[in-house]
């Protein structure tokens, strides 16, 4: 094949391609533009919060959509100081981390035996866990608090077991769906080796669960980080969400500080989400759909 021939061929092919696919491409472009506009609507609150966090309170009240005339970095300094940021951040971090690890461990173990032992009781216990998903938190709020109090759990570490108890049903539900799809053969070869159930679970099964573990962990981190009512009762004022709540209330709403502290409190979780987000889809595709 000569050189010119090749070139002509390529040009021809390209022409044909453009001809056949140009309406489709146009449609695609249109969809892309629409989606970007939609994305803007979804991004809007976050953007607006960020922009307003650099304005003073009167500026925000007068026109929340204007750009800042002067960067009010003092908002951040004040919000940092008034919320006692390092302390509440550490508290929130500790609670979120502890509860999430607890939920992952406790639920994966429970879901594993509930799937693997096909007894009637397994089914009943699974249903019992699922039941919690239909009960509103407000229905158990008062007795739950009395319980926590009598168990001396009104501390930062004490809230962790409560989160595990309340968070494990959804996690068990998701693990349950996933484990059903994990083939038995690998485990059985491990069983023949004489590995104990414990070792078998942690060395063989648990690594297989990584995608769904990532999803469970992410969803629980999001929930616990942003949770409001439970910490309000158990450890008032000591988590990020509670500390910044004092800027927004009936008789005092300081928008400037509120916006700055919202940015401060949301940035760790948004960062975490952006790093972890690819696991969410993978995990859910692996687990929840088979519920």
């Amino acid at each position: 094949m000569s050189r010119t021939n090749l070139q002509v061929d390529e040009v021809l092919q390209k022409r044909i391609q453009i001809k056949t696919s140009s309406p489709k491409r146009l449609a695609m472009l249109f969809v892309e533009i629409v989606m970007c506009a939609l994305a803007f609507i979804f991004l809007f609150p976050a953007l607006l919060t960020l922009v307003n966090s650099f304005k003073s309170h009167p500026e925000i009240v007068m026109n929340p959509f204007a750009l800042p005339t002067k960067l009010q970095l003092s908002n951040y300094a004040n919000a940092w100081r008034e919320t006692n940021f390092p302390v509440v951040l550490a508290n929130t971090f500790l609670i979120t981390l502890g509860s999430t690890i607890g939920i992952v461990l406790v639920s994966s173990m429970a879901a594993y035996v509930l799937v693997r032992f096909k007894w009637k009781i397994s089914w009943v216990i699974f249903l019992l866990f699922t039941f919690s998903m239909v009960v509103p938190f407000q229905a158990i709020m008062v007795p739950l608090f009395a319980n926590a109090k009598s168990l001396n759990l009104l501390t930062i570490l004490g809230i962790i077991p409560i989160y595990i108890g309340l968070g494990c049903p959804l996690a068990i539900f998701m693990y349950h769906g996933f484990i059903k799809g994990v083939p038995l053969e690998i485990e059985e070869s491990a069983a023949i080796d004489g590995a104990s159930m414990f070792r078998r679970f942690f060395q063989v099964v648990f690594p297989l669960l990584t995608p769904i573990t990532a999803t469970v962990a992410i969803l629980n981190v999001l929930w616990i980080w942003n949770d409001f009512l439970l910490p309000l009762l158990i450890i008032p004022g000591q988590t990020l969400q509670l500390a910044q709540y004092k800027f927004i209330g009936q008789f005092r709403q300081d928008y400037a500080l509120a916006m700055a502290s919202l940015v401060l409190s949301a940035s760790p979780i948004v960062l975490f989400y952006l790093i972890m987000q690819k696991y969410i889809i993978k995990g859910i595709s692996a687990g929840a759909v088979k519920g």
């Binding site: 008062v142 608090f145 009395a146 926590a148 109090k149 009598s150 009762l233 004092k246 209330g249 008789f251």
Partner: peptide, 17 residues
């Protein structure tokens, strides 16, 4: 400090002794 839901929180606390 419990700004907007002060009564709810106070009552829950008292109910829990």
């Amino acid at each position: 400090i419990v700004p907007n839901e002060s009564m709810a929180v106070l009552r829950t606390k008292m109910a829990g002794g």
